[in-house]
Write a protein that binds this DNA or RNA. Structure first.
Lengths: 142, 142
DNA sequence: CTAAAGCTTCCCATCATGGGAAGGTCAACA
DNA sequence: TGTTGACCTTCCCATGATGGGAAGCTTTAG
């Protein structure tokens, strides 16, 4: 199986498969005589695992640890759970931050009549709300 | 006022102030004979505005538009509101995505006893849950 | 044989932010 | 006066996950 078929089978783009190989998240695959990467069923399972972990928002570093645990039959489930709980705490914090932003913005927008006049509580809020010294932990905007 | 005092007064780091100048979000400041940036009260207001907009999760591009509207006394509040609503929709989507991740992960973790044994529903879930073809819109992991 | 599709590597871009180097400036203090 | 330390300047590089695209080679179908 070439990298394109692998991408289709795993849901991970060819670009990303190469990247994961370069950073050592997955081992280097076998190569054809022409240098094409060659994959088997086992690789599909590993990449699907990665894809699902990404879908749950795990970082590639955490996924590396999850893969190690997955392949270690003598792991303790406690280790896995610890990792998952840490990620859960992270998700919760991000949700809290985003929700706080949303609530503030909803409040500002609610009072903005949104017509042709220039008076705008949203701009007023941005111009006058006190700056929280340390600021919220900012999410990347996209 | 030098850039350090400006950073303290506005809550925006000196590094970022220079960056915002370079990308044209704020105009170039006056300079002392030695080339030091010199700021006044008006600049403090503008940078605080930027800081607060960042705290609400607006992108720098959106902030540029907000600044334009802020400085345009003939703006319509409708334009501001449209921008805010767009950002609100964005926030809501990100919250939804993160919440979906959290809920899935909570379900997996709930069934993991987290002791010394290797059996782990979290890893099992990652290894067997079907891959959603297009996947969720992924948040950057941090 | 040729054209298209697929593969390779390599470099660059995103977005907001920060780290750090190399070097100039300014204030205070002995 | 000289020195020290805090502050400023510009410039380059890094982050994290992903994608775009170029230049060039291989494979496959017609």
């Amino acid at each position: 199986m070439n990298i394109g078929a692998m991408a289709a089978a795993s849901g991970v783009s060819a670009k990303m498969i190469r990247h994961y190989e370069k950073i050592g998240l997955v081992g280097a695959s076998a190569r054809s005589t022409a240098g094409y990467r060659q994959y088997g069923e086992r690789d599909v399972h590993a990449l699907r695992f990665i894809r699902r972990a990404r879908d749950l928002g795990f970082s590639l570093e955490q996924i590396g640890q999850l893969l190690s645990l997955w392949q270690d039959t003598r792991r303790s489930s406690a280790e896995v759970k610890r990792l998952a709980e840490a990620h859960l705490a992270d998700l919760d914090e991000r949700i809290r931050n985003l929700t706080a932003m949303r609530d503030t913005l909803v409040t500002l927008a609610r009072d903005c009549c949104g017509d042709e006049r220039p008076d705008c509580p949203i701009l007023d809020g941005l111009a006058s709300t006190p700056v929280h010294p340390d600021g919220p932990k900012r999410e990347p905007s996209r």
